[in-house]
């Protein structure tokens, strides 16, 4: 009876160990697969656990990352602020800073944190997750560059158009003046012509009068 009981206990124990091993490998696979750099630090800011994505972004292997103070792989001032805020608030979302890789190259990242607590509610450490902003920053820079180029091109075109407008205005003024002069000349001509016409009419009237007088004299004689 006792033997049977201990056999059952051993069976249950082995089955639990198998389940734990399966769960452990499941967690490990997810941890390794996730492309986002993830790590855990104690409240003093010492890295205690990290995933391969953090190895990739920092260019350091897991053995050199674990045990490293966080400020050695980040912009020290900013990350200390993030740790303080996390301990105070319990989390921090989307804070921009940069990771310093093993060749001292700065990699822009967005940081997300979350305090980890024990079952009794005591703060035991901080989870960190990073989003690599390198590509986004490159795109931003490229858009800014394109926008500047566009601004320069628009300004050049505007200047060109202004020049054309100014030239046109000068031409229009010149042509208007010429036209005004011609109109004036025409007016003068017109006045002259009208005067001549009136004189002609007067002369015709005088001729008519003289003709009438001639005819009258002819009749009298």
């Amino acid at each position: 009876m006792v033997k049977e009981e201990s056999k059952n206990k051993a069976k249950k124990y082995n089955s639990l160990i198998e389940d734990i091993a399966l769960l452990e490998s499941y967690v490990q696979e997810i941890f390794k697969f996730i492309p986002l750099p993830l790590f855990f630090s104690n409240l003093k800011g010492v890295i205690l656990e990290a995933n391969p994505a953090l190895e990739k972004i920092t260019g350091r292997d897991i053995y050199s990352l674990i045990g490293e103070p966080i400020e050695n792989i980040f912009d020290g001032k900013e990350i200390k602020k993030i740790i303080r805020e996390t301990i105070q608030k319990g989390f921090v979302h989307d804070k921009e800073t940069f990771v310093v890789d093993k060749d001292f190259k700065k990699v822009p990242v967005s940081v997300f944190t979350q305090v980890r607590k024990s079952l009794k509610g005591v703060k035991t450490g901080i989870f960190f997750s990073l989003i690599n902003l390198t590509e986004i920053k490159k795109k931003e820079e490229s858009i800014q560059k394109s926008s500047k180029i566009l601004e320069v091109k628009v300004a050049a075109k505007t200047r060109e158009l202004q020049k054309i407008t100014d030239e046109l205005e000068v031409n229009i003024k010149k042509r208007t003046k010429e036209l005004e002069e011609k109109v004036e000349e025409l007016e003068k001509m017109n006045k002259l012509m009208v005067g001549r016409e009136l004189k002609m009419v007067g002369l015709k009237e005088k001729i008519n009068e003289y003709e009438k007088e001639v005819n009258k004299l002819k009749e009298e004689s």
Partner: peptide
Amino acid sequence: KQTTKHSLVMKMLIKYFS
């Protein structure tokens, strides 16, 4: 030293490092 950094025990102990 190094094997301590990357072990299951380490993962279990992680919350006691205060």
